[in-house]
Design a binder for these strands. Structure first.
Lengths: 190, 190
DNA sequence: TGAATAACTATAGCGCTGCTAGATTGTCAA
DNA sequence: TTGACAATCTAGCAGCGCTATAGTTATTCA
């Protein structure tokens, strides 16, 4: 039955094209301009075809978000310089996180802001999500007794910094000072 | 010229009714269900009337957001218990901030997440926004040399905690532990 | 007081959205 | 070749933000 396998392959391919088109359009013109109609046009199929792949528009955002986590984890891990101290490692991860948020705003938005139907901190949390959390925990762990709680706090701080700066709530010019401050705080033994 | 004054009064009244209706609908069914049509129906005028008050839908969100800041500042200030130590004061403000975010999610969303056209950290920043920032700075100041940067970091942490928990990214059950952890960190002299 | 003017408000419509029922086309087994 | 099934498209619904235009009401002046 090579036929059904080919069909499955083609379907997976098309699904990837939808996700790619969504990613591209979102990065280019923002998520508001990512409409099902435009995506359909992009992949050269009619609108209803998309609903054979995704339950609704949110699910498409969710698929992009998942790809984002697939990227963010490795980005954070590889951001740590060779031979870096534990403090430097934490600073590297913090800066890498913020750079990711600012350089890929649409992707970041899909991952953390838009409704996407993704579940976290639950049994069905995908591996890439756990990996990303793990990458952050790796640099927090050396300093804290309760690593999970501390990592959640660390993550929240980075997310808050990214969001407030992205919305112009805090001064972009002082990003480095803020990172220095929070790394200084998180890197004290307790 | 009492006539034009009466008209101005009526217009201001109607504007308040629009904002009130938006707030109410948003809290009840979420911002997605706050449509210009529904607001028009709510205040018993036709749709175009709303555009005599606000440039567009976002501006209505912005007006609600501004009211939110008018509430949040005083809430934070009055949250500090009488005779509280500096550390307790910081914890009180942190908890009050998170409670506000979770108890008034729609209001909080308007203030920090949705596009609202509000400017921050600029010369035209409204007083209520400065007040809110000041309320947070008041509890951070005693511990930090660069109070503004530290306050931005503190605020970012609280915002991150609120958003990640609201989206189910971190475990709601550990809120208190996280707050204890971040207060512990922020309340060390540097 | 009655006509002219200005201010206000409603109707109706545009182009867009997410989503789907039903018709149509293409594919494959009998 | 034909019938069944799956894949796909056409066409449409109800709703959205927003606005041009028409109509009504209130105000002003002769």
């Amino acid at each position: 039955m090579g036929i059904s396998e080919r069909k499955e392959r083609e379907k997976a391919e098309r699904e990837q094209r939808i996700i790619g088109a969504a990613k591209m359009l979102a990065e280019k013109d923002g998520w508001a301009s990512v409409t099902v109609r435009r995506l359909a046009q992009e992949i050269e199929y009619s609108q209803p075809v998309l609903y054979a792949h995704f339950e609704n528009r949110d699910a498409i955002v969710g698929a992009v978000a998942l790809e984002g986590f697939g990227e963010l984890g490795p980005v954070l891990r590889s951001s740590v310089r060779r031979g870096a101290s534990a403090v430097q490692a934490m600073e590297d991860v913090a800066m890498a996180y913020l750079n990711f948020a600012f350089e890929r705003p649409a992707l970041y938005e899909a991952m953390f802001v838009l409704p996407s139907g993704l579940r976290f901190a639950k049994s069905d949390t995908p591996q890439s999500l756990r990996d990303t959390f793990g990458a952050m925990m790796a640099v927090v762990e050396p300093f804290c007794a309760n690593a999970e709680v501390a990592t959640e706090a660390f993550w929240a701080t980075l997310h808050g910094l990214a969001e407030l700066e992205r919305h112009g709530r805090i001064r972009a010019a002082f990003r480095k000072e803020r990172v220095a401050h929070i790394v200084d705080m998180f890197s004290r033994r307790s």
